[in-house]
């Protein structure tokens, strides 16, 4: 099947994903070969930055979703308000 762009081909996207996971693994492995000269104690843990980045992002997404439950409105919220007047 001919695709408009190589990124439209699911196989290529799958290859990109695999490449991404390999790079992820490489960065963690590289951490063991490079002297990270940690400044704080927790920084010396294996793969600290990788885990911290991942967990912090999950926490921020969950936190944002939680806040969104209270504060989300339709995007016509203010527009309708203006029409009322």
């Amino acid at each position: 099947m001919k695709h408009e762009h190589w990124l439209d081909d699911r196989n290529n996207v799958r290859k990109l994903w695999r490449g991404f996971l390999v790079v992820l693994a490489l960065t963690v492995i590289a951490g063991t070969f490079v002297d990270l000269h940690p400044h704080f104690e927790i920084e010396a843990w294996f793969g600290f930055n990788a885990a911290y980045g991942f967990v912090a992002c999950l926490a921020m997404i969950v936190g944002a979703k939680g806040l969104g439950r209270f504060l989300k409105r339709r995007d016509s919220y203010y527009v309708e308000d203006a029409k009322d007047e």
Binding site: F20, V23, T27, N49, A50, A51, C57, I61, K72, R74
Partner: peptide
């Protein structure tokens, strides 16, 4: 190395949580 770890794993978090980040026609 530390910066790449931090960033690429936050990228992983984005794609893992993509379903929860789908945009809805809302404001906050």
């Amino acid at each position: 190395v530390t910066q790449l770890q931090l960033l690429l794993f936050s990228g992983l978090a984005f794609f893992v949580m993509l379903d929860h980040l789908k945009r809805t026609p809302t404001i906050t």
